[in-house]
Design a protein around this nucleic acid. Structure first.
Lengths: 237, 237
DNA sequence: CGCCTATTTGACGTGACTCAACTCCCGTGG
DNA sequence: CCACGGGAGTTGAGTCACGTCAAATAGGCG
């Protein structure tokens, strides 16, 4: 699960739930950002909400000493900008060629007024983002290198289109800054997982997962609890 | 800033903003939890929203291997339970003697229906929580022991009643599990800060901050951007 | 006073970081 | 078609910050 929250994953689980928010963007023109370009910078006035049509985006923040931290990765279907106040608290950069649509916050707000049920989707989205952040904090504070990489692969595997294949369009330093490691340790850990027979290199930015269960065992995940939409869930929405 | 989001801090900045949500609890009876008692456990059905009247609470999650992670600390004025779906994603435990009020989610929802402006306060609260989580991820992934402890002291200093004094009602292992360190490293780092003349031991669970600026320098904080309530902020609320 | 827990301090081990060399891949241009 | 260049990735050797284990000390409370 991305630390930014992955709307697509949510909408797969509850098909009729989140499409509404994304449908708002269909009337907006599609724009292109080339690999490496920034959609916006950390600290910019937060004027727009974005909807990714295709490609991959990284979300990053910087420490005073220049160290970079990657909060998460976004892909087709994801939204950016729901959780801001007046300024973006992080930058968004295209990993590869990205197509996206954008809407001014003001227009977005007007759309919400017209269809108030979207507000509960906002809440739901923000809650997902909080849960994802907490999962990631747990990874960063308690997991070792192998557990981190396994967790990362597992998340990507679950949200990927092709079963058994994990694609990593970002470069190693993106993964490293996301998992709180160095590129060398990421590389060594991936090699170790290949030697253990848990994954296989498939293409330049792709691995085949030989054994999902081994991966899960090595990920040392927290206990999961059912949190599906049910009686209790309608409350607060 | 607590990873759970600190409503009190917010309401100090925007006095008329968040009181509304908390006022809802005034008609509920006050309950007591003794030190060490759990308000609820990770995985419990999320039936109630809580409002802390006095005392301190820790919010924790567990990994499959039994390791504990503390997501944050809460104190008088804070709310718990706004960000849940059907189950609590973490447990809440009293650090000391805690007084609190609770309200069923259903009743809370009815109150929200009566006063829809509370929904924007919910959104605002969730956004604070996301920002705080991201700050904490940054700490966990990029900061060394000294920077972590300084950041922690600084957060506590800013939200504390008595200027220049930091109170740490929780035990060292709580701090350690919050900052992703061991109790020994926490202890050694505090000692080092005392030797450097940045803080002074005041009482058993209290330090005097000699130099706030040294503390800030050693915390290596990320750049901060104004994000105060302004024109752009009314959007989405 | 005596017990128990929290905390500090010390000695030592180690997993991940740093620095450095090397390889791989892919695009470019001769 | 191959030579070349440069960014990305891998691998190795050595170091260090923090973890682990163990012992000493300090408080709190009956």
């Amino acid at each position: 699960m991305s630390a930014i929250g992955n709307l697509r994953a949510v909408s797969e689980a509850y098909p009729c739930d989140e499409n509404g928010l994304r449908a708002l963007f269909l009337r907006q023109p599609s724009e292109i950002a080339e690999a490496g370009a920034a959609l916006f910078f950390e600290g910019d006035p937060a004027c727009h909400v974005f909807h990714l049509v295709s490609g991959n985006v990284r979300i990053c923040r910087f420490l005073a000493d220049g160290h970079r931290f990657i909060i998460g990765f976004l892909r087709a279907g994801d939204l950016i900008g729901l959780s801001f106040r007046s300024r973006y608290m992080f930058g968004a950069e295209a990993i590869d060629r990205v197509a996206f649509r954008r809407m001014s916050k003001r227009m977005f707000e007007e759309e919400l007024q017209l269809a108030p049920e979207h507000r509960s989707q906002m809440l739901s989205h923000l809650r997902d983002e909080i849960t994802a952040s907490q999962d990631h904090m747990l990874l960063l504070s308690q997991k070792n290198a192998e557990e981190r990489v396994c967790t990362f692969l597992l998340d990507r595997l679950d949200s990927d289109d092709t079963p058994g294949l994990v694609s990593l369009p970002m470069i190693r330093s993106d993964i490293a800054d996301y998992l709180g490691m160095t590129i060398e340790t990421v590389s060594r850990t991936l090699t170790k997982l290949v030697l253990k027979g848990i994954i296989l290199p498939a293409a330049r930015h792709q691995f085949k997962v030989v054994s999902r269960s081994s991966l899960a065992r090595h990920a040392n995940e927290a206990n999961e609890y059912d949190d599906h939409q049910g009686e209790a869930l309608r409350v607060l929405q």
